[in-house]
Write a protein that binds this DNA or RNA. Structure first.
Length: 493
RNA sequence: GCCCCCAUCGUCUAGUGGACUAGGACGCAGCCCUUUCAAGGCUACGACCGGGGUUCGAAUCCCCGUGGGGGCACCA
């Protein structure tokens, strides 16, 4: 079966941090493009200069690359349909706005923001729908031209049909019918000469040969406007796919600032940059977000390559999805376990370094099998493995006392363990475990007590990777030194 | 207020008129394994929003409620 290559685009505005919603749409765009042998395009929608924040565009590009969603065309890689930044396409929009005016589908409007605001407030007072009152809709063209020539500021508004209905087709919801009288004459070109989203996106999607437009369902409200603009130009429509929105974990409403702050307190975030810092991996984030809005029957642990194979716009779901961070943990941990030792080592290294630990590569490789299945996020490596890279550990004295025993008994155990370990020619776990177990048998203490003291002594913590394997990595000298120190602590208690 | 969209376990979802005793995953609970914490294995709990139709037959189609979400800017 041969399919037509799809051209898809992610079109974020650089107005803040790149978030999960953008990542998911980008993923679907990427999957469709790759599956069909088409292209995935990045377009920056920066037409609102006031809201543009410095660095946001870079964060989007970095975020996409971190996720592994390499775009085929974009501001920093170029492409045949550039430029890919809307502020650099000003003339294109202006000429297209003129086409619409000439065809009678749009008109200049001289209403001031102040007047518009007043009209809106009066309408609300009268319990009417806020809408443009049409003052400039039927202005005499000659008069309009004269006012423009006089330098009067103006916008261009799209002339919506007054009667009948607009039927717009969404791939997930079917035909959506809206009465035209509900529609408004929206501004498509602003006083500053830049377009609003409505014009810019439609023109660019056409100029850039986009075949499938995937976007959030918050665009459903202006969907009829958009198809009217496309039709006014006489262009073919792309396949429109309005994706479900993400709801906050409670399922009650969209993620808010407040909610985002709460997530951060719990060690989660909806911002891609944060997720990286928190130790989430692209595989986990992608797999997790892919499944919110895409119905996969079974085997839902997938690599991106597998997603490319299995993806279908037909199996996307239209209903809103509540964010579930516990599921993110699950997918993140699962993909960590799927990684090769070398790959995981390379990805863990920065997290150790970030903590100021001097990482020895040979040690790092050795500890991977010990900590891998204990990691939910990459930065968990600190709590499980920092002691491997420290000269010394500082166990809490009370932790050195085994359950049900006192300091004196614990010190006795530590001394015997020291002797046993010191008597071994090497500290491999094969060599050390049998005599220590024998000691457990003959001493009458239980394994938890004996090994617990050793664990705290050698790792400095009550929860750690497997004891004997850990000591083997730490080495004979360091292990003995740490046990010796524990004995001293216990003897002074 | 008006418009639009959505509706299966707590959550993400499978299901496209009979194969449904409604499947999977996360979480949760229990058990096994076990030197800690995990991982792994097994088991349990757990849903078709309500009411009307259509049909021999409805989770699946239609209508009306209800609930939830989104939108009504010279923002995207």
């Amino acid at each position: 079966m041969s399919v037509k290559p799809a051209r898809t685009r992610i079109a974020p505005s650089p107005t803040g941090h790149m978030h999960l919603g953008t990542a998911r749409v980008a993923l679907y765009d990427y999957l469709l493009a790759k599956q069909t042998g088409g292209q995935f395009v990045l377009r920056i929608e920066d037409t609102d200069i006031k809201r543009t924040v410095p660095g946001a565009e870079q964060e989007i590009m970095d975020g996409l690359r971190w996720l592994g969603l390499e775009y085929d065309e974009g501001p920093d890689v170029g492409g045949p349909y550039g430029p890919y930044r809307q502020t650099e396409r000003r003339e294109i929009y202006q000429s297209h706005a003129k086409i619409l005016v000439d065809k009678g589908h749009a008109y200049p409007c001289f209403c001031t923001p102040e007047r518009l605001d007043k009209v809106r407030q009066e309408q609300m007072k009268r319990k009417e729908n806020p809408h443009y009152d049409g003052t400039c809709r039927n202005l005499d063209p000659d008069e309009a031209a004269k006012r423009i020539a006089n330098g009067e500021p103006y916008t261009i508004r799209f002339k919506m049909p007054k009667e009948g209905v607009t039927v717009a087709h969404d791939h997930l919801r079917g035909d959506i019918t809206t009465e035209n009288k509900q529609l408004n004459d929206q501004v498509i070109l602003k006083t500053d000469g830049l377009p609003t989203y409505h014009l810019a996106a439609i023109v660019d999607d056409h100029e850039m040969r986009i075949t499938h437009v995937m976007r959030g369902s918050e665009w459903l409200g202006t969907f009829p406007l958009h198809v009217n603009i496309v039709r006014a130009f006489g262009w073919d429509e792309p396949v429109w796919i309005h994706l479900s929105v993400f709801l906050k974990p409670s399922g009650k409403g969209k993620m808010s600032k407040r909610e985002a702050a709460q997530a951060m307190k719990d060690g989660y975030s909806i911002f891609i940059k944060d997720m990286q810092d928190l130790g989430f991996i692209p595989e986990g984030v992608l797999n997790w977000s892919a499944l919110m809005g895409w119905g996969v029957a079974e085997d839902d642990v997938m690599t991106v390559a597998q997603m490319v194979d299995r993806f279908s716009i037909d199996s996307l779901t239209p209903s809103p999805a509540a964010i579930n961070f516990q599921r993110l943990d699950h997918f993140n941990a699962t993909h960590i376990r799927l990684m090769t030792t070398e790959d995981l080592a390379a990805r863990l290294k920065p997290y150790f370094t970030r903590e100021g630990l001097a990482v020895k590569d040979d040690v790092l490789i050795k500890i991977i099998p010990l900590i891998r299945e204990r990691l939910t996020t990459l930065d968990d490596c600190i709590s499980f493995g920092a002691f491997f890279f420290k000269d010394d550990v500082s166990p809490a004295p009370e932790d050195l006392i085994a359950k049900g025993l006192d300091a004196k008994q614990s010190a006795e155990i530590a001394r015997r363990a020291y002797e046993i370990l010191a008597a071994q020619s090497d500290i491999s776990h094969e060599r050390c475990e049998p005599p220590l177990r024998a000691y457990v048998e003959e001493s009458g203490f239980n394994a938890g007590q004996v090994f617990g003291i050793l664990r705290v002594a050698t790792t400095g913590q009550k929860v750690s990777p497997p004891l004997f394997e850990s000591m083997e990595v730490i080495g004979r000298d360091v292990s003995l030194r740490r046990v010796q120190k524990a004995i001293e602590i216990l003897e002074t208690m």
